[in-house]
């Protein structure tokens, strides 16, 4: 069977397609804003999952690619006058480039050592950007107003940004599916199970891991550019939040790591829960603690995540939920 005949390929794609399409049709600002946050979470979690889910490498500071890419795209757009699309790609490419550069070295580390190194990279990047004058140092940058003009003013520009994000999210999902179901992805799974054994079997682990790292770094760079353009400003504190990085991990874990559908479910589920807790009069003050308690329960008792759990328990859905 070809890829496009598989339900597991279409399901997540159709969901996002219809969802984003509906938002565009209804054309309501508040709806766009909330969909933006959700789609961004889906895109980020899915990108992370390409590395985490398929190779087992825990990139704890993955947000660094969102930050660095976002900064670079923002700079190209606002200071250099590049169009949004080109800037976003530029941001993504920079993230991918950095990932390729550090990946070869850092991916030699295993387990918690790798996780720690990625935290270090994120903190180092944050500190560096805070001192990097072209990027505005500690205060960051504001969008040059003329950047909006190209898209007919701030309002329409936001819709364009949303459309780009929508498309990007679908591309991430396609990439995630293709990586998982390729020969290449098979090699990655072997790495996840037992890297040394995989090497013996002829998987070129360092190269495969680095390529995966590059892919999973590219999309956060693109998404970062779109997000900060939408916000109108960027600063180090927002771009390199370790907390966001961990939220991405939580989303992947919640939905089910190593599945295409998992990050989608996890991201939407997490954001919904967060929204609910933040506005609920009972939980408002304790929203962080309640979210933590729920995370703990998931990790201790449903480590396969929602999608993983359903796959394990309902045989018939295995084909649909990839």
């Amino acid at each position: 069977m070809k890829v496009w005949q598989k339900p597991g390929f279409w399901l997540p794609l159709v969901i996002v397609l219809v969802w984003g399409g509906a938002v565009l049709l209804i054309h309501q600002d508040t709806m766009r804003e909330s969909a933006f946050v959700l789609l961004m979470a889906v895109g980020l979690a899915s990108s992370l999952n390409i590395l985490l889910g398929y190779t087992g490498y825990v990139s704890f500071g993955h947000i660094v690619f969102f930050g660095l890419g976002g900064y670079t795209g923002f700079y190209l757009l606002s200071e250099q006058g590049w169009p949004l699309f080109a800037s976003a790609i530029g941001g993504g490419l920079l993230s991918a480039f950095i990932a390729g550069l550090v990946g070869l070295a850092v991916l030699r580390l295993r387990g918690a050592y790798f996780a720690l190194a990625t935290i270090g990279i994120n903190e180092a990047a944050r500190a560096f950007v805070s001192n990097f004058e072209p990027y505005g140092g500690a205060t960051g940058m504001f969008v040059n107003f003329s950047a909006y003009q190209k898209y007919g003013g701030p309002g329409p520009a936001l819709w364009t940004t949303f459309t780009f994000l929508w498309i990007t999210t679908m591309v991430v999902l396609v990439a995630s599916y293709l990586v998982k179901h390729s020969r290449f992805g098979l090699g990655l799974l072997a790495i996840r199970e037992d890297e040394d054994a995989a090497m013996v079997m002829g998987v070129k682990a360092p190269k495969a891991k680095t390529i995966t790292y590059v892919i999973s770094a590219f999309f956060p760079g693109v998404i970062g550019t779109l997000y900060f353009f939408k916000n109108g400003n960027i600063e180090p504190g927002d771009a390199f939040q370790l907390h966001m990085s961990i939220e991405m991990l939580v989303m992947v874990m919640l939905g089910g790591m190593g599945t295409v559908m998992g990050p989608l479910v996890g991201a939407v589920g997490y954001q919904w829960l967060r929204g609910y807790l933040l506005t609920s009069p009972i939980f408002k003050d304790l929203h962080l603690a309640v979210a933590g308690a729920m995370l703990l329960v998931i990790i201790l008792f449903v480590p396969a995540g929602l999608v993983g759990w359903v796959r394990n328990h309902v045989q018939r859905l295995q084909k649909v939920l990839e």
Partner: peptide
Amino acid sequence: VINAPHLSSLLATFAVNMIIIGVGTA
């Protein structure tokens, strides 16, 4: 999660982090 992959213990202790900070902030 003591024998589970590292991600589990990292996230489990992070969940505790959230709980303490959450209660502490309140």
